[in-house]
């Protein structure tokens, strides 16, 4: 599948709807040439299998992560501990699950694998073949790298 045809739309739509329902926040796309913030990131990789395979990587900068944790838990949060990263992992899991459901509804059957969570200092994608989305909401920026190829 060519880069231009990569299915970023289901992921963008799913991110928007999950942010709206869980956080009551809207999301905007930032121009692609804008550089993501250089700070510690929670990096969540979700592998996909099926008609599309590869992975989707979510990078939540530390500030975004802590703002989400504060909003959802109503508690103070000042460090990227297991509680915070696991909460974000589940959010990425929900977003990817919703995207996979809408892809399957469009006759592109795919499943997701459990999130792999790491802390990273790099917001850039590790792959040249991915579609990168830099997004912004009230809680801050986040980046999604979609690296999927078609098997049909």
């Amino acid at each position: 599948m060519e880069k231009q045809q990569l299915p970023e739309k289901p992921f963008l739509d799913a991110t928007k709807s999950v942010f709206k329902s869980m956080l009551d926040m809207d999301i905007d796309s930032l121009p692609g040439d804008e550089n993501p913030k250089q700070e510690e990131n929670v990096r969540i990789e979700i592998a996909m299998v099926g008609d599309l395979s590869g992975s989707v990587v979510y990078n939540f900068p530390k500030s975004t992560t802590l703002n989400i944790v504060k909003t959802l838990s109503g508690m103070e949060a000042d460090r990227l501990d297991d509680f915070a990263t696991s909460m974000l992992g589940e959010m990425a899991n929900i977003i990817s699950g919703n995207a996979a459901t809408s892809l399957s509804g469009a006759n592109c059957k795919c499943d997701i694998r459990p999130p792999q969570i790491t802390i990273s200092h790099m917001a850039q994608s590790d792959s040249h073949n991915s579609v990168d989305m830099l997004l912004h909401s009230q809680v801050g920026e986040l980046c999604e790298h979609i690296c999927l190829s078609s098997n049909v």
Binding site: M22, L72, D82, F83, S86, M87, E90, M91
Partner: peptide
């Protein structure tokens, strides 16, 4: 801690 983080995000999404 991991369990608790996932639990909260899961429950909120499930309800909303």
């Amino acid at each position: 801690q991991k369990f608790a983080g996932k639990l909260l995000a899961w429950l909120i999404n499930h309800v909303v």
